[in-house]
Design a protein around this nucleic acid. Structure first.
Length: 900
DNA sequence: ATTGTCTGCCC
DNA sequence: ATTCTGC
DNA sequence: GCAGAATGGGCAGACAAT
């Protein structure tokens, strides 16, 4: 799925455990330093959770007064910069933090610059101003939502923040969106929020969009918070006077740092508020400060900023979303696409207060409401597709939002936010295909090309006519610095007639002597920053497979065959440095040769193959024209899309369970509902590109492991165990060796049952179902708690990683699939069998099914795991058991059979 | 100087 | 990366 | 089928702790 994988973070607050130890340490320190009165919340104080505990005797009111004093000081220090900000100096960003750092030092004693009334109010819940905001029915249908009635009250309210929209408004939006799974409600809520901002405070729109999308900048613009669960949990401890243990308990219960903050704030009997509410801009600017801070002491500074932000949150909901924003996981059911849709409709219906000449006037909602349903849908769809097309080609809200404010929903947008050199476009992706027969069936009647799917790193290479080169990763990070060797190669492979281009390929580690492909792990050993060409240790080859832009023209609308021809004819391949992906052009008739090709790919350390439609068929072009899916050189603006025709249930989804008998190949050609185009469609995962990997197939290797422990899940999985720690048996020692955590492949139903089965709060009694009474692992007297769970790691388990939240009484066997066996720095399973220092683990582990037929004595062994590793590492033509010293050029022929 | 923790980003 | 789920 | 959510192994790099 095109998910924002870049922002995937764990933030599981597990590190809170570490601070338990740190706590004692700090306690000692604090005791020693006694007498130094603590000052809450200034960025400079020591980040210890203990600090607040140290003064737990003080009442809430005393605490409030102390905090009030501190805010007063802060206010003084801020006096000037505050008013600056109020006078509308746009980025009054640096002021706040600086002034927090500056004062203290005794200087800021009682010297009120002016007797401003500083009201730090002690109060429960919301203020009157909040009530204005929270009363807005943001989820109303945008066509009836009465924008104008809210603008004046909001602006009146915002006058206290210099006209800046409050964070409370955005929080209100998130709260409503987060309270439903319905997409319509979520979208409407975002639409109306954006409309309010467009109309009442357009400057806050961009920051609001960043915050809504869990990001602070475009991916190719390097700006990272470098702040995660660890820092935030420490900050929460401090702000809400929680012990790490309490925080941990809350976190285990809710599975979300934001929810913990919400609960903690609710429990605080009194709510302390700063006189001025948080603003959208202010929050965004604080994030910017966090991102900018580097070097020694930066962690402390970041934590200080986080604490202040959390402390300044007016309500529980604000705390919740502040924290979720800090961990960049809002969980409101809207990220990229929903935001784009919402933006498109917001601008369709709303104009900024003083629209520039260029602004394409917005529609009056009431007239849109009067349109026919079809006409309205078409209007919405056009706008939506326009934004999606723009974003796919130029994925940066920093460009998109200002452009929208200037030109509105207009074709002009694609000129301003279209494909640009040195701005990565979103890559086209391949749909997963279970095996070759289903691939052949899907592409029946089409000419396609199969390409090796190298196990490396995807790269998008830009070069302008001045010869400047940029290289971007799959998730659009700029990695030009990582590959100076490739950059210097560009002049060599760029042909005579080429001035500018964007091409795409896979960077793979290779043996420069033999050209042999090396595993992904080798590639990932490369340095990433400030790499000098002469320091490069891991040689790479770029295997090019597509060309999206050439000499000023987009090629996205051209069929792959044509793009490929241009690529191969205008660029020069350089052996072992810059080559074309190995490919085989074929049709569904060529069953055998395709299968051989696939085998050859996997034999050469490739993950499998990518299969791509080469040409547009007339019928598809017609179909596409109807749906306006075709892009020309200048992408056309989609005008209309039909409701999806009903489709018949597809060929039986093979039950993953046993049943090894592979299905038969060619089924009848499926009647296709969607055109299969050979164009390059950025940001889409279409069936015109199919991904076939050996581990997707039913015939893939699997391993049978024993669940031995687990963690509390997060978010929607917070009531269940996830992930779950799995182990193999070591036959010689009798120990269970942990191999991997697993979280993929479980259904909700399974989770529920699993949680009931391993229940520390359940009936303590009852021997495990399958148990055969013997105390084989006996004597160790493992302390049982609840049902099938253990109080601590049993002696017979071999595992050194992070401590699970719960240990299981081993009693069942689960079958799992995986892509590869990896040499592990953390797991010790099979240690000594293939490496003396490292154990083995799995790449992309996922649960398949319970092996009801197996007892734990029949689970896979570490020797079995080791053998899997040898098999994949060694010469695939030869069973590794009798492996010999053979190694030559790796131009292997294959004879393995696949998919019988 | 070395080791450990945390984060971001590859897959 | 992979997978599941609600719409 | 899309969009979103939850989370795998493992690496380099940046800091913090020792």
């Amino acid at each position: 799925m095109p998910s924002p994988a870049k922002r995937r973070k764990k933030n599981d607050f597990k590190s809170a455990d570490q601070s338990v130890r740190g706590l004692d340490y700090f306690f000692a320190k604090q005791q020693a330093n006694k007498g130094t009165p603590s000052s809450h919340g200034t960025g400079e104080e020591k980040p210890t959770c203990a600090e607040r505990n140290e003064v737990t005797q003080e009442t809430d009111e005393e605490y409030a007064r102390r905090l009030q004093e501190q805010y007063d000081k802060e206010e003084q220090g801020l006096g000037i910069s505050r008013s600056e900000a109020e006078d509308g100096i746009p980025n009054g960003t640096t002021s706040r933090l600086k002034s927090v750092e500056v004062p203290k030092a005794g200087s800021s004693e009682r010297k009120p610059l002016e007797p401003t009334i500083r009201t730090l109010s002690l109060q429960h819940g919301t203020t009157a101003a909040d009530k204005v905001t929270f009363a807005i029915p943001l989820d109303e249908d945008p066509l009836t939502f009465d924008l104008s009635t809210y603008i004046s009250p909001l602006q009146a309210q915002w006058s206290s923040t210099g006209g800046n929209a409050t964070y409370a408004l955005l929080t209100h939006c998130f709260t409503i969106a987060g309270s439903t799974t319905g997409r319509i409600k979520t979208t409407n809520t975002l639409i109306n929020t954006f409309r309010l901002l467009i109309a009442a405070d357009p400057d806050s729109l961009l920051p609001a969009v960043w915050l809504s999308t869990n990001s602070i900048s475009a991916p190719h613009d390097p700006m990272e918070l470098n702040l995660g669960g660890s820092t935030i949990s420490k900050a929460l401890c401090k702000v809400y006077s929680l012990t790490p243990a309490t925080l941990r308990t809350l976190y285990n219960k809710y599975g979300d740092g934001g929810d913990v903050a919400f609960e903690a704030k609710k429990r605080a009997s009194l709510t302390l508020r700063k006189p001025k509410p948080l603003t959208v801009q202010g929050v965004y600017d604080d994030l910017g400060k966090i991102a900018k801070s580097t070097g020694k002491g930066s962690a402390e500074m970041k934590q200080g900023t986080v604490e202040r932000m959390i402390r300044d949150a007016g309500t529980g909901e604000e705390s919740r979303y502040l924290v979720r924003t800090l961990v960049q996981n809002l969980r409101i059911g809207a990220v990229k696409t929903t935001t784009l849709i919402a933006l498109s409709r917001a601008f369709l219906l709303t104009a900024p207060p003083h629209p520039p000449e260029s602004f394409t006037s917005a529609y009056d909602p009431t007239s849109v409401a009067r349109m026919s349903k079809d006409a309205r849908q078409e209007l919405f769809l056009r706008a939506e597709e326009l934004l999606k097309a723009s974003y796919a080609r130029h994925p940066s809200y920093a460009t998109l939002v200002p452009a929208l404010l200037e030109v509105g929903i207009s074709p002009e947008l694609l000129l301003r936010c279209g494909l640009s050199l040195h701005v990565p476009l979103r890559p086209m992706l391949g749909a997963i295909t279970r095996d070759l027969p289903s691939m052949l069936a899907q592409l029946a009647g089409r000419a396609f090309t199969a390409e090796w799917k190298y196990d490396g790193q995807r790269a998008q290479v830009h070069c302008d006519d001045a010869g400047t080169v940029s290289i971007f990763s799959r998730h659009l990070e700029n990695m030009t610095d990582k590959y100076p060797d490739l950059v210097s190669l560009v002049p060599q492979f760029r042909g005579e007639g080429v001035s500018s281009f964007i091409l795409e390929g896979e960077v793979v580690a290779v043996n420069p002597e033999t050209g042999q492909l090396l595993p992904f792990q080798t590639l990932s050993n490369r340095a990433r920053k400030d790499v000098k060409q002469e320091d490069v240790k891991v040689q790479v080859c770029l295997y090019a497979f597509d060309l999206m832009y050439l000499n000023g023209s987009e090629l996205l609308g051209r069929p792959l065959r044509e793009r490929r021809n241009i690529l191969k004819s205008l660029f020069n391949s350089i052996p072992r440095r810059f080559e074309w992906v190995r490919n085989l052009d074929a049709t569904s008739e060529d069953v055998e040769s395709v299968r051989e090709f696939f085998q050859e790919a996997t034999n050469n350390k490739c993950e499998g193959i990518m299969v791509k439609v080469l040409d547009n068929l007339d019928e598809d072009i017609k179909l596409a024209e109807q749906e306006d899916l075709i892009d020309g050189d200048v992408p056309s603006i989609p005008t209309r899309k039909k409701a999806k025709p009903a489709k018949g249930k597809e060929a039986s989804k093979p039950s993953k369970a046993a049943d090894e008998s592979a299905e038969n190949a060619s089924e009848a050609r499926p009647s296709r509902r969607k055109p299969l185009l050979a164009t390059y469609t950025p940001d889409k995962r279409l069936e015109s590109w199919l991904k076939v990997k050996k581990d997707y197939a039913q015939s893939a290797d699997t391993i049978d492991m024993i669940p031995i422990g687990a963690w509390h899940g997060q978010g929607r999985k917070s009531k269940w165990w996830s992930p779950i720690l799995l182990a193999v048996r070591n036959e010689s020692t009798g120990l269970l060796e942990a191999v991997t955590k697993c979280m993929s492949g479980f259904t909700d139903k399974f989770y529920k049952e699993n949680r009931a089965k391993y229940d520390p709060d359940g009936q303590a009694g009852g021997p495990p179902e399958n148990e055969e009474d013997d105390d084989s692992d006996d004597l160790e007297a493992v302390e049982r708690i609840g049902k099938n769970t253990l109080a601590s790691k049993p002696m017979y388990v071999e595992y050194n990683g992070p401590e699970p939240d719960i240990w299981f009484e081993p009693q069942e066997v689960w079958e799992c699939v995986f892509a590869d066996v990896t040499l592990s720095p953390t797991y010790t399973a099979a240690i000594g069998l293939v490496s003396d220092e490292r154990g083995l683990s799995l790449r992309f582990p996922r649960f398949l099914r319970v092996r009801e037929d197996k007892s734990i004595e029949e689970a896979s062994t570490s020797e079995f795991l080791a053998e899997l590793y040898r098999k994949q590492a060694g010469d695939p033509d030869r069973p590794s058991a009798e492996k010999m010293e053979v190694e030559e050029e790796a131009e292997l022929d294959d004879d393995g059979e696949l998919y019988g």
